[in-house]
Design a binder for these strands. Structure first.
Lengths: 102, 102, 102, 102
DNA sequence: ACCGTGGTTAGCTTTC
DNA sequence: GAAAGCTAACCACGGT
């Protein structure tokens, strides 16, 4: 699939493509490649859904262990914010370093 | 950890928590368990974020291969909707069956 | 109110706001306009809440008439999904048409 | 419609209804009533959607007037919370008054 | 009567 | 700057 020589449908401004002489072969090939992309995406989304499910289960466990879920979520959320803040500060530091010549 | 005999903090309306005789040991143990939950969740969320990233990359690839991303997203969305609809219709059937007494 | 010449508060990153010469008049005017927006929103949300209440009542009526509410909800939900699907398919068609250059 | 003499489908535990000898007339009547409920609900939901749209527009206006939408949402939300709190306190007061004999 | 669950809605992020 | 998709909080319902 590294040697792609047919052009799939694509947003275009005013040009007309594949108007005539477009055999079924290319159409089929394009369709197959499209299908491949769709399936890759769907598999990944499925994995994502599974993990989301796992997360819910962990919260459930925590609840069963006596923790307050809402509070727990807040804690996780706050740590994530801190993390972002820390990264931003690091970026800023890098920026400064670059500005003064490494 | 299956034999949990300390009570973690928890949302309470008007009760008094940890009033007296609450040694540091329990507090530490509770904190440790809380930390464990938080870390499990964070690890899972990290995995989820990675997959979300992968999905974005696949869309990027598709775009590079000449597909229109917006259209591709629509296709994926419609397929998901079909899936949901199919499931709901099955549920509805079961519901009807229950509603009229099996 | 079409000629607004004062600047209300607004999220800003690192700028200095209302530094000097900022009399009370502008502040009051801004506050008044803010209040007006808040009140408009609150009135609309109130209307929305009333309608949500009405919907609940209709479900209640249906229940009183012997219909199974859960099933009824499912039916409504499926019809909504059909509607959305129909619209999306139309959009998809347009999208395809655009993608291949009209 | 005050004299309803047919029984619509409904959740039941173990009884079997409408098994045999159920003419089409009742079925049609039930279907018609069901349809009426569905349509009433759909109309109300449509109204609700319109109002939700209006609210979005007001936020848009406020933004155009220079207000920060996120902050504005926060203000509205806080006022709603205050309102709830106020009501709860009033209820509590009534409760007390009742408890001591008006 | 309470808990657990699922559906609904609002807010945030990211894209165009 | 607008629009949409995704995510997280909220709420009402049914089950136990």
């Amino acid at each position: 699939m590294t040697e792609s020589n047919v052009t799939p449908f694509q947003a275009q401004d005013s040009d007309v493509k594949n108007k005539a002489g477009d055999g079924d072969a290319q159409r089929d090939a394009t369709a197959a490649r499209l299908k491949a992309f769709v399936e890759r995406i769907e598999r990944l989304e499925e994995e994502k859904a599974v993990i989301a499910e796992d997360i819910k289960e962990v919260y459930g466990e925590a609840k069963g262990a006596g923790f307050d879920v809402k509070t727990l979520r807040k804690v996780v959320s706050l740590r994530k914010m801190d993390e972002q803040k820390r990264r931003e500060e690091e970026e800023l530091l890098d920026l400064y370093k670059g500005a003064i010549g490494l």
